[in-house]
């Protein structure tokens, strides 16, 4: 440990402050009692879908497409999750199925 106790504590505290700032800003900008502008209400409706798309890409950002196994474990597992979900519509089943398959692929098949 290179930092003193208080230095480390302060770093953690400012990281918490920065993080919390990003979570609170929208609620400060558009308080409950005031009707938010129409554009904000519109964003509130469309952003969840857009951000879910961003999060999927974000999760796959580390995949090396040009080197073996060329993202095959990820693509196959995502496809299986999607297929399971389309078929049964059971959130847990889709996620467990895809995750177990992915673990097998990276630990056994493409190890």
């Amino acid at each position: 440990m290179q930092m003193t106790f208080w230095q480390a504590a302060l770093i953690i505290l400012v990281v918490a402050l920065g993080t919390q700032l990003t979570r609170w800003i929208p609620f400060w900008l558009f308080p409950e009692k005031k009707e938010p502008p129409k554009a904000v209400a519109y964003l509130g409706r469309v952003l969840p879908a857009a951000m879910m798309g961003l999060l999927v890409v974000y999760c796959l950002k580390g995949v090396q497409w040009t080197a073996a196994p060329h993202g095959v474990p990820e693509l196959v597992s995502v496809a299986v999750v999607a297929a399971l979900h389309k078929w049964k519509g059971n959130v847990l089943l889709s996620i467990a199925g895809g995750t177990i398959l992915y673990m097998l692929l990276v630990q056994v098949v493409f190890a």
């Binding site: 798309g53 999060l55 999927v56 999760c59 999750v81 979900h85 996620i95 895809g98 992915y102």
Partner: peptide, 11 residues
């Protein structure tokens, strides 16, 4: 990967 799968399902 459970989290990736979660986002795929919620997408």
């Amino acid at each position: 990967f459970a989290l990736t799968a979660l986002f795929v399902v919620l997408f």
